[in-house]
Amino acid sequence: MNPDTPVDVLDCLGQRCPLPVIALAKRLPSAPVGAVVRVLADDPAAAVDIPAWCRMRAQQYVGAVSVDGSPAFDVRRLS
């Protein structure tokens, strides 16, 4: 399996800050180290806050993609 393929997709569309980041913080620790979790989030703050969360928590921000026209953000668990 491609290591960049998400093991889980969190649908946070329509949720406002900081809910998408909270969903990510709750889910990522139960993903295997090295796995990617994808967050679907259309709140404008998510594009800044998800990379910032990764920096603060020493996790890897893989990047932003578009899924069916919605913004999505991929994060890899490093520790």
Binding site: R16, C17, P18, V21, D43, P44, A45, A47, V48, D49, P51, A52, W53, R55, M56
Partner: peptide
Amino acid sequence: GSACTSSTLRPSHVLAAMGVLTHG
């Protein structure tokens, strides 16, 4: 500077340009 406190519901352009956390 959080988005939820602005009339446009967009986070502060300053915090976003810095790449720092905008919520809370």
